[in-house]
Computed example of a mutant assay.
Amino acid sequence: MQNGKNKLSFLNKPWLIAIIKILILGGCLYFLIVKFHEQSISFKEVIIPDQFAFILVVVLLLMIFNWYLEALRWKVSLQQFDSISMKKAWQVILGGLALNWVLPFTSGDLLARISQQRDKYQATSAAILNRGIMLCFTLVLGLYVLSQLALEYEMNGWFALVILIGIPVLRRLFKKSESRFLTYFKELPKRFLIRIIGISFVRYLTFVFQFYLLLTAFLPSLPADSIIAGIGWIFLARTALPLFFGGVGVREVSGILFFEPLVSDLQLVIIPIFLIWVINTVVPSLVGLVFVWRMKLTSNYSG
């Protein structure tokens, strides 16, 4: 790799990404307006579920636990080559969450992480590992959802085609040439990798459970497997699309598309989806704003 300063490739055309995100947001908002008009949705008429205050407190506590796990995972990921304190990990994680509001493809999180470490290559590799693990969990749950939809709508042939094409594509993506980014993966002890995967799994279960609690509070008659499948569908849509404002709009639209055949009152779907966004994204992002001003942000790599 040549010496000098290299910018992250996904920041090279922010105008194009911004246009895509605006179009997606605009399309989602239009869809929601049409649905609200069709069903005459009025949130003033919503009946608050029993024990909702207790459920809300539990979800808020799980939010704290959720971001504690993410900070712990980042600390463990760096422990082998550039150890940081738990306090610093908290600041980096929450600061990155705040930056995601203004940078494309949640790159604010990546920028915050690599900018605070001396070895940018190792930090980038650690961040890629963290994201890759969570992406795998999302894809596994998403594949379960797609398989159920394929069975329901008799699209088994198309689902098999996606799998057959997707596996070699993924394998090719992971077969990269030798570079300084691969040093991290080569030198990472297996015990650290197992610990990172374990923390990631507990964290994934945590925010699935948060979402499940809120959805079951408003949709108590819906089967558990349908709710979990709906959560997987929403996570998959959020992962696949470039988003504004932490995914607001996309979450609600994907939730409506999945749950509309199952429920008669769409506002009972929209409310928990909006609440999980506020609790897991907006609240910690506001806290993270405090740490952003203290960061010296740079994504430059020097050889």
Rank of each mutant, 00 (worst) to 15 (best):
A127F: 14
S107I: 14
N66I: 06
N280I: 11
R73D: 01
V290F: 15
L262F: 13
S302Y: 15
N3V: 10
P104Y: 05
I234M: 09
L139W: 05
W293R: 14
S42P: 05
D109Y: 10
L173S: 08
I33H: 09
M295H: 09
V162W: 06
M86I: 14
L69K: 00
V208E: 04
R118F: 10
K75T: 03
R294Q: 14
G157S: 11
E252W: 11
F218R: 14
A71L: 04
R251E: 08
V59L: 02
L97M: 14
K88Y: 02
L25S: 12
L110T: 14
I133G: 10
S125K: 00
S107D: 01
L173P: 00
L289P: 05
L143A: 12
L241N: 07
E260F: 03
T124K: 05
F192H: 11
S107M: 14
L143Y: 10
S302R: 08
L110S: 11
G95P: 09
E252F: 04
G247K: 07
F209M: 11
Y144E: 03
Y68V: 03
A53K: 15
W67Y: 13
N280C: 08
L29G: 00
I163P: 13
L268Y: 09
L219G: 05
L289N: 05
K75S: 07
G232R: 01
S177L: 03
R73C: 10
F36T: 15
A224Q: 08
S107N: 02
M134I: 07
